[in-house]
C-alpha cells in the first residue's frame, strides 16, 4: 500500500481482528446503555469500554509497517516470557488448526451422537492428526479413553450425559 510516497506493508488479518474487537466492544457498550444509563450499570463498564476503544485506535498503526523498515517499533521489553507461541511452519500450523476444528466438532456433536461416540471419533481423529498410523493403536486406545472418560466422569459428577452405547 502507498501512503504519501511511502510503501507500507499491511497486516490485513490483524486489522480485521482489531475491527472485530471494536465492533464487539461497541455492541457490548450499546447493549449496556440500552439496558440502562444508570450509574449502577455503567460505573466501570463505560469508561473501560472507552479506554478499550482508544487502545484499539492506538494499535491500528501497528498493522502498517514501512516496507523499508524492519518490523516492530513499539517493543517495550525484550520478549514476553509468558507469551505462548504458535508453530511457524505452515504444515505444523495446519495441524494445530485441524486439531482445534476436530475439538470443536466433538464438542458440538456430544449431545447429538452421544458422548461415547463423539469421544472415540475425536480420539481417532486427534491421533491421526498427531501422526499415528497403526490401525491397532487407532482402535484400542480411543476405546480405552472413551471407557475411562465416560465411566470415570459418570462416577464423579452428578449430571447425566447422553450416550449411544455405553
Amino acid at each position: 500500500m502507498r501512503i504519501r510516497n511511502q510503501h507500507y506493508v499491511v497486516d490485513w488479518l490483524h486489522l480485521g481482528f482489531i475491527l472485530l474487537m471494536v465492533v464487539s466492544i461497541t455492541l457490548y457498550l450499546l447493549n449496556a446503555r440500552h439496558v440502562s444509563t444508570s450509574l449502577n450499570n455503567l460505573l466501570l463498564l463505560q469508561p473501560l469500554a472507552f479506554c478499550a476503544l482508544a487502545l484499539c485506535a492506538l494499535i491500528v498503526p501497528q498493522c502498517f509497517r514501512r516496507a523499508d523498515r524492519p518490523a516492530d517499533a513499539d517493543v517495550l521489553l525484550e520478549d514476553d516470557p509468558l507469551a505462548p507461541s504458535l508453530p511457524q511452519g505452515g504444515k505444523e500450523l495446519a495441524r494445530v488448526v485441524v486439531l482445534g476444528l476436530a475439538l470443536g466438532l466433538m464438542i458440538f456433536s456430544l449431545n447429538v451422537v452421544g458422548f461415547d461416540v463423539a469421544i472415540s471419533l475425536f480420539c481417532i481423529a486427534a491421533m491421526a492428526i498427531c501422526g499415528e498410523r497403526r490401525p491397532v493403536a487407532l482402535i484400542v486406545y480411543p476405546l480405552a479413553v472413551t471407557l475411562a472418560a465416560v465411566y470415570g466422569f459418570r462416577a464423579l459428577m452428578s449430571y447425566p450425559m447422553v450416550t449411544f452405547i455405553l
Binding site: 493403536a137 486406545y141 480405552a144 479413553v145 475411562a148 470415570g152 459418570r154 462416577a155
Partner: peptide, 16 residues
C-alpha cells in the same frame, strides 16, 4: 499406553 490406562484407572476406582 498401559501407563496411561493405569492413570485413568485411578479415576475410575472412586466409589460410584
Amino acid at each position: 499406553a498401559l501407563k496411561l490406562t493405569m492413570l485413568a484407572g485411578a479415576s475410575l476406582a472412586c466409589p460410584n
